[in-house]
């Protein structure tokens, strides 16, 4: 069941695609001496849904920020679609969804989704069409004229997902996007995110500290442990697609959740609390 294997897995979709993300021997030491990430190795294939899970300080957000070129590694190599993270960022290869929606309060919903298109100099006529399509994708087309403060937290985060997808990047990086939401909203959005993933065929790398969320969403789960932050193991998730509300009630779901929980515990000498 558990494999400390970091070689490329075939994606759950069955096709053996080439690695879109490749992490080799990457370490990150912050100036204050904290080892945020130690010797991480990971290959991610096109179309996968990868969750990075672990307690605070395990380096999961650090790894995502390294992939996004928001910080640079102390050592090791990262390739995104064959390019360095900086080249990939400049080629606008990924969309990034943050922990908070980070919507611009002075822009309405539609205009928020158009923000990356404006920055990237898309043709004016195309901006609106794309933004409207993205809002329809996240089911918020009726709220195009609303301002962010008029939306609930869950809706704001859906807008931020639409914004990340607006310029059609190959990769979607998501850093605990549903962490601040209540359980019911979160489960709804999990289901919606899986639908988005199926419809768009994006490769998603998703940071979370919720075991059920990771099991429900992922094709593979990267279990990370702290002090120093490292990849403990990678657990493939063989739950059938498309997943539904009932998926969470299957025996296999509980087996996988238990496997993740044990991997988290094994990597560290204390109980991992949810």
């Amino acid at each position: 069941m558990m494999q400390a294997n970091t070689s490329p897995e075939s994606s759950a979709k069955g096709s053996k695609a080439e690695a879109i993300v490749s992490v080799q021997g990457v370490s990150m030491v912050f100036p204050n001496g904290t080892v945020a990430l130690k010797d991480a190795n990971l290959e991610i294939a096109q179309g996968e849904f990868i969750s990075l899970i672990g307690p605070s300080g395990c380096g999961k957000t650090t790894l995502l920020r390294l992939l996004a070129d928001l910080i640079q590694p102390s050592s090791g190599t990262i390739r995104i679609g064959g390019k360095s993270p900086e080249e990939a960022r400049k080629a606008r290869a990924y969309g990034y969804v943050f922990q908070a929606p980070t919507l611009m309060e002075w822009r309405n919903v539609l205009s928020n989704v158009m923000l990356p298109l404006e920055v990237m100099n898309f043709p004016v006529q195309e901006r609106r069409a794309r933004a409207e399509r993205m809002l329809a994708l996240v089911g918020l087309e009726k709220f195009a004229r609303h301002y962010p403060w008029q939306l609930s937290g869950g809706m704001q985060q859906r807008v931020s997902i639409a914004r990340a997808l607006a310029f059609d990047p190959q990769l979607l990086f998501m850093d605990e996007p549903f962490g601040a939401l209540d359980e019911i909203t979160r489960e709804n959005l999990n289901l919606e995110l899986l639908r988005l993933w199926r419809e768009t065929g994006k490769t998603i790398i998703f940071v979370t500290h919720s075991i059920p969320e990771a099991v429900f969403l992922s094709t593979r789960i990267v279990v990370m442990t702290p002090r120093p932050g490292k990849i403990e193991t990678v657990i493939p998730v063989d739950l059938p697609q498309p997943r539904t509300f009932e998926t969470r009630e299957t025996t296999r779901f509980f087996e996988l959740a238990t496997a993740v929980r044990e991997a988290l515990r094994k990597g560290h000498g204390y109980e991992v609390t949810e």
């Binding site: 928001l70 611009m104 990356p116 920055v119 990237m120």
Partner: peptide
């Protein structure tokens, strides 16, 4: 986070000020 967001768009300094 908003500044990081602009960085992920590879926004120029000027764009970050403007937007």
């Amino acid at each position: 986070m908003a500044l990081d967001l602009m960085k992920t768009y590879n926004a120029s300094h000027w764009q970050t000020y403007l937007k």
